[in-house]
Design a binder for these strands. Structure first.
Length: 631
DNA sequence: AAAAAAG
């Protein structure tokens, strides 16, 4: 079989990882980059080799830590931190990155359908098999088991195979049929479980089927995309762009990205060549619309990645402007899809402004924490954090030589300071935050991905969505105020069936977070240090009148359809359907809410009342919990 | 209270 990806690039294969500046990315060349997570380390088709995203566990070493004595160090053998490091980092020595970022099409091939189902790929993805999925809404299309059950066009199917998507993850199994049916969707699924593909495949497929004859992608001065994908950070929009481009390879569907910090002229040039799917961050998009370079009047599909983030305080006005005041067709005319690992109740309520008769999906037991991530919390005084971190990294270096470690801090200044300290102490590290120029941000990410600097010190700019293979350890040097942020941060590890480790440094000022943290860890079957339980109890009183308890303390942080409330005053289900008779039918036996693949320990919809008392409520459609007296 | 997102 001939493989165009293979042939076309063979001669131009570079010898080292190459950065492709934005202005070159949409050239019809062969040097399009694709995320390393989807590239194979060997150009040969095979069952054993390769470093694809669905490939086998790096985590055997860390898995042991989950049951290890928490007071001990991270060494598999439990040795204590060694002061004399045999392999100190010397900045002047040329270092070889351990991870070759081979992002070339010629390393991808179409795999045959006879792929051994018992290969390591599938075994790891089976970690998701028992994931419970909650659906609510009317006439939910049935889920599929295989990609082949969905009527994608052959070019898209080929791309899916090339990307080694062997079998849909739970969120893909449910969300793709919903999206293909043209329904609005709010989807809540664990980090790293394939949300991007879940909205990308249907968008590409439906553009091909319904709109491609319109030739809307022919060159124009005013770009009129058919689909708009919004993301909260520049790097995430880049990543989505790369993925989407890969999925639409050879389909004729054109994908363009627009984000701040990069020359706008180059992005205009890309737009002028035609665009079907526009991936953007809000600020740059508004700018382009105001300059009349982009019009949203033809948008048929709107996807908000990290949907809860896009609608929280910082972003909501901008996003509302884009969706409601810039010629975008109204809800019900366009199709709207929101995806995230977390959906706080208040945000769900806001989001219903953008949705029409939508279906709510929740895949996975908690907001994120797949059991694949081992979570540890250590009590560390503020002043001791730096030395504690160095000790931790030292122990880790002895065992996990090439493990990537992502360290989250609270502030931009703090990120620079800590990165500097780590470099002084002999740990190759780099920092990323919003005060750096875009080039530096992208350079930092690349350097981290490749393993050249295996420690990345980051603010929340890197908390969401970024898919970085080989991140074995996430350290919350400073814990976030918001439990959702914690969920997203630790979700940078343990992706696509792999396991990972998350360590948090807890100090007194994190008391307001304690309760939510304990509940989250309990749900993920993690060992809770007794002292943390003490803090959790004080944090009840702590936030009793405050924001933390009402908004983030565990019980409301999203994962259930808020429409579920039987007497939900603030949500009129019938109004949304435009049919006053619907409310009766909703109250009647034919409930639009159901639960699939349920396990014994997972609540059914009839147990909705108990949600208000426990952690399961963060899995609730907010339409149900409002009525439970939480306000 | 901080971070992100336009320049």
């Amino acid at each position: 079989m001939t493989n165009p990806w293979n042939e076309s690039t063979r001669s131009s294969r570079p010898t080292r990882p190459t950065y492709l500046p934005p202005h070159l990315r949409d050239q019809p060349t062969i040097t399009i980059t694709i995320p390393a997570s989807l590239a194979r380390s060997s150009p040969r088709r095979g069952r054993g080799g390769g470093g694809g995203r669905v490939r086998g566990g790096n985590g055997s070493g860390f898995r042991g830590c989950r049951t290890a004595n928490p007071s001990r160090s991270y060494g598999r053998s439990g040795e204590n931190f060694s002061e004399n490091d045999p392999n100190p980092y010397r900045p002047n020595v040329m270092r070889q990155p351990p991870f070759h970022i081979s992002e070339k099409f010629d390393e991808l091939e179409v795999i045959d359908d006879d792929e051994d189902p018992s290969s390591d790929v599938n075994n790891n993805m089976n970690a998701y098999d028992e994931t419970p999925v909650e659906t609510s809404g009317f006439d939910v299309p049935p889920p599929v088991t295989l990609f082949s059950e969905i009527d994608f066009c052959s070019a898209l199917s080929d791309n899916i195979k090339r990307c080694k998507y062997v079998k849909p993850t739970p969120i893909q199994r449910y969300a793709i049929p919903v999206a293909m049916a043209g329904r609005d969707l709010m989807a809540c699924a664990q980090t790293g479980s394939g949300k991007t593909a879940a909205f990308c495949f249907p968008i590409i497929s439906r553009i091909l089927k319904d709109y491609h004859h319109l030739k809307s992608s022919s060159p124009t001065m005013m770009a009129c995309p058919l689909a708009l994908i919004l993301a909260p950070t520049r790097e995430l929009s880049c990543q989505i762009h790369e993925e989407t481009k890969k999925f639409s390879y050879k389909t004729g569907v054109k994908v363009v990205v627009a984000y701040g910090g990069a020359p706008i002229v180059q992005q205009f040039r890309n737009l002028e060549k035609g665009v079907d799917i526009l991936v953007a961050t809000p600020g740059r998009l508004v700018d382009m619309i105001e300059r009349a370079k982009v019009s949203l009047r033809k948008v048929k599909y709107l996807a908000l990645d990290e949907g809860d983030r896009m609608l929280d305080m910082g972003f909501e006005p901008q996003v509302r402007k884009i969706v409601q005041q810039m010629e975008m067709p109204p809800a019900g005319v366009r199709q709207t899809m929101l995806f995230s690992a977390t959906f706080p109740t208040e945000i769900q309520r806001l989001a219903s402004d953008f949705l029409s008769n939508y279906i709510f999906l929740a895949a996975g037991k908690v907001g994120s924490s797949t059991d694949l991530i081992a979570q540890k919390v250590e009590y560390v005084h503020d002043v001791d954090k730096k030395i504690h971190l160095v000790n931790l990294l030292r122990a880790q270096r002895a065992n996990e030589k090439h493990a990537l470690t992502l360290v989250f801090v609270e502030t931009k200044r703090g990120a620079d300071a800590l990165q500097h300290w780590l470099s002084m102490k002999g740990f190759p590290s780099i920092a990323i935050h919003g005060d750096k120029v875009q080039m530096e941000r992208e350079r930092a990410l690349r350097s981290f991905r490749s393993g050249l600097t295996p420690i990345l010190v980051a603010t929340d700019v890197a908390a969401r969505g970024l898919d970085i293979p080989h991140v074995a350890h996430v350290i919350n040097f400073d814990l976030p105020r918001d439990i959702s942020d914690y969920v997203h941060r630790i979700g940078r590890t343990g992706r696509a069936g792999k396991s990972g480790l998350a360590t948090a440094f807890f100090c007194d000022k994190n008391t307001p977070l304690a309760k939510a943290l304990v509940e989250l860890m309990q749900e993920a079957n993690q060992e809770i240090p007794p002292w943390l339980n003490q803090y959790a109890e004080t944090s009840y009183a702590y936030g009793s009148g405050g924001m933390q308890s009402s908004r983030f303390s565990g019980i409301k942080f999203g994962g259930h359809d808020y429409r579920r409330g039987a007497n939900n005053e603030s949500y009129d289900y019938s109004k949304q359907l435009g049919d006053s008779t619907v409310k009766e039918s909703y109250a009647a036996a034919s409930s639009p809410f159901s639960l699939h693949n349920s396990r014994a320990d997972y609540p059914t919809s009839s147990q909705a009342d108990s949600f208000s008392d426990g952690f399961y409520s963060h899995m609730l459609d907010y339409r149900s919990v409002v009525a439970s007296g939480w306000d």
